[in-house]
């Protein structure tokens, strides 16, 4: 995995953190697991229901676009702006959502591109 990939993973974590904190989700647990071909980012939100973050999930659920990612991933940010979440979504390959009575767990995966 290249250093560029590491920076992209850091960008995803940083922007999602910023988005969630700005919207009042003050208890957030991140688990980052770097594997051979992909990196998994697990976000645990205690006492949160899907409906509370549905908009965020729908925004980050984007088909990847290598050319847009190559061109502009450096300025992805200001996640407070909803349209910027869409761009962030291009860095994420899949999102799984798991809801329990106690937590909401979002599992984002990014396949290593180089």
């Amino acid at each position: 995995m290249s250093f560029q990939e590491t920076r992209k993973i850091s960008k995803i974590v940083s922007e999602l953190t910023s988005y969630l904190l700005k919207r009042g989700f003050f208890h957030v647990r991140f688990l980052i697991e770097k594997r051979k071909d992909e990196t998994m980012i697990e976000i645990t939100l205690p006492s949160v229901k899907i409906a509370d973050v549905r908009e965020m999930i729908e925004k980050i659920d984007q088909q990847s676009s290598p050319e847009i990612e190559t061109y502009g991933w450096e300025v992805v940010g200001e996640a407070a702006e909803k349209d910027q979440l869409t761009v962030l979504g291009m860095l994420i390959d899949s999102v799984d959502v798991e809801e329990t009575s106690e937590n909401l767990v979002l599992t984002c995966r990014r396949k290593h591109k180089d």
Partner: peptide, 23 residues
């Protein structure tokens, strides 16, 4: 016992719906 609900619809929608829609 912990009630657990997996949102499998979400991954499925990503593969089938979004790809075609964007195309």
């Amino acid at each position: 016992m912990v009630e657990k609900r997996c949102e499998k619809w979400y991954t499925v929608s990503r593969i089938d719906h979004q790809e075609n829609n964007m195309h």
